[in-house]
């Protein structure tokens, strides 16, 4: 169970907020649950609710509201390509399309081996390093960016990065 397994971490998280404001820890605890279970399961929501002494439905609403929490299973990791305006002006849509072609899937789909789900996402605050993507996995969220306009992220480079995550 989440609390038993991560007691120390959960207690230190709770200690950051006033004693009567436990609910403030819902976001860090959801990240913890997601890292533990791959996605936020129904049971995880109940566990988080119990720790914070709030209703499971309050936890579920947080999972639904914020983009980085997931209530369903997908690939072991998510490759999230920014295709917002500044990145799109530097070829991000075409980049996303080519990544999909290379992996033989459409945006939102998962590779057959279950390794990676590819998604197009909103601005990631890396507009000067387009095209770029982030990888969200059990260890958190990590950026992978172009070096410069002269050395943009290539499809080969992206595939190499994805391969580097395998087995992690």
């Amino acid at each position: 169970m989440l609390y038993e397994k991560h007691r120390e971490q959960i207690e230190s998280t709770l200690a950051r907020y006033p004693a009567d404001q436990k609910r403030s820890a819902v976001m860090p605890l959801l990240y913890l649950a997601q890292s533990e279970y791959g996605h936020v399961t129904k049971e995880a929501m109940d566990e988080v609710a119990a720790i914070l002494e709030i209703e499971p439905t309050q936890v579920a609403s947080i999972v639904g509201f914020y983009s980085l929490y997931y209530d369903h299973k997908a690939g072991k990791r998510r490759m999230q390509i920014c295709t917002d305006l500044p990145c799109a002006l530097r070829g991000a849509d075409k980049f996303a399309e080519e990544v999909c072609k290379k992996l033989g899937l459409k945006l939102g789909e998962t590779t057959k081996d279950g390794e990676v789900t590819v998604e197009a996402v909103m601005c990631l605050a890396a507009c000067d390093k387009a095209p770029m993507f982030q990888v969200q996995d059990a260890d958190g969220i990590h950026y992978h960016e172009s070096v410069s306009p002269e050395k943009p992220m290539t499809i080969e480079g992206a595939m190499e990065i994805l391969n580097g995550y395998k087995g992690k």
């Binding site: 436990k22 403030s24 609403s61 509201f65 914020y66």
Partner: peptide
Amino acid sequence: IFNHLGAGAYICGEETALLESIEGKLG
């Protein structure tokens, strides 16, 4: 000082939504 990580919601850059979010509510 403590860090508090959001979870992908532009609206939390609006100051009162940000406060709601730290309080563990919808942003």
